[in-house]
Simulated scan of single mutants.
Amino acid sequence: MKKNAFERRRVLGLLAAPVAVSLVAALSACASGPSPARDRAVLLQRAQEFWKSVQDNDPVTSWKYEELSKKPGWTLQAYLKREGIVYDAVEVQDVLSLEGDKALVNVKIKYSVPILRMNNQEVVLKDEWVRIEGVWYHADRKNIL
């Protein structure tokens, strides 16, 4: 009798091992896979890093976050010529929408345009972002302000 019970346990153990391995793999994939909360957190982090570089007047760093950096025909040198706005304060507020590979982020900006003698302007932008090959980039836009 003891031998049959031992044999049944051994067979059940052999059958259960692949199921347990598959279950652990499936649970791990779910935990590390994409989720709306994770997508939002990653997007907010990228937006904060981008806008900090813009506010710090660091166009070399902000270029790395731009969709334009992924488009043929655009160069860092061309991007650097798009200056003229002074960003006095920037606050990335929240993600307004995130659908597939497109998103809108609320960004509160205090800015000046010295050449036009416009000082202490304030706006809340619906800032566009696109995901390219799994990475969020600040969307190409004609004029954000």
Rank of each mutant, 00 (worst) to 15 (best):
W51M: 10
Q55S: 11
S32Y: 07
R38K: 14
A37T: 13
S35Y: 04
D58V: 04
S53G: 09
D58F: 03
C30R: 14
S28M: 13
A37I: 06
S32R: 08
P59T: 10
P59R: 12
R40C: 06
R46W: 01
C30N: 12
P36A: 10
V54F: 05
V54N: 02
R38Q: 05
P36E: 08
W51I: 12
V60Q: 15
D58L: 02
N57K: 12
W51H: 11
R40Q: 15
D39G: 01
W51K: 09
Q55G: 11
S32T: 14
F50D: 10
S53C: 05
Q55W: 02
L27T: 06
P59M: 11
D58S: 11
L44S: 05
L43M: 09
A31H: 04
R38E: 07
P34Q: 12
L44C: 08
A47E: 06
K52W: 07
L44F: 07
A47Y: 05
Q45N: 14
S28F: 14
Q55D: 01
F50R: 10
W51E: 10
A41I: 01
D39K: 01
D58N: 15
R46M: 04
A29S: 10
Q48R: 15
Q48H: 10
F50N: 12
R38P: 01
L44G: 04
R40H: 05
N57P: 00
A29P: 00
C30M: 13
S32A: 03
Q45M: 09
Q45W: 02
G33E: 11
S32L: 06
V60C: 00
L27C: 11
S28E: 08
C30P: 00
L27V: 11
V54Q: 10
N57F: 06
A37E: 15
S53I: 02
E49Y: 03
D58H: 09
V42C: 02
S32N: 04
C30F: 09
K52E: 12
F50Y: 15
L43G: 05
R38H: 07
S32K: 09
A29H: 06
S28D: 10
S53W: 02
D39F: 01
L43D: 07
Q55E: 14
L27M: 12
P34T: 06
V42P: 01
Q48T: 13
R40F: 00
R46T: 03
L27H: 03
P34S: 15
F50K: 08
G33W: 08
D58C: 03
W51P: 07
A41H: 05
Q55M: 09
Q48F: 00
E49M: 11
P36D: 12
Q45S: 15
F50A: 15
A47I: 07
S28P: 00
R46C: 02
S28I: 05
L44Y: 04
A37W: 03
G33D: 11
A37F: 03
V54K: 01
S28K: 06
Q55K: 14
P36C: 04
E49V: 00
V54S: 02
D56R: 10
D39W: 01
E49T: 02
G33T: 09
K52F: 06
D56H: 12
S32E: 07
V60D: 15
A37G: 03
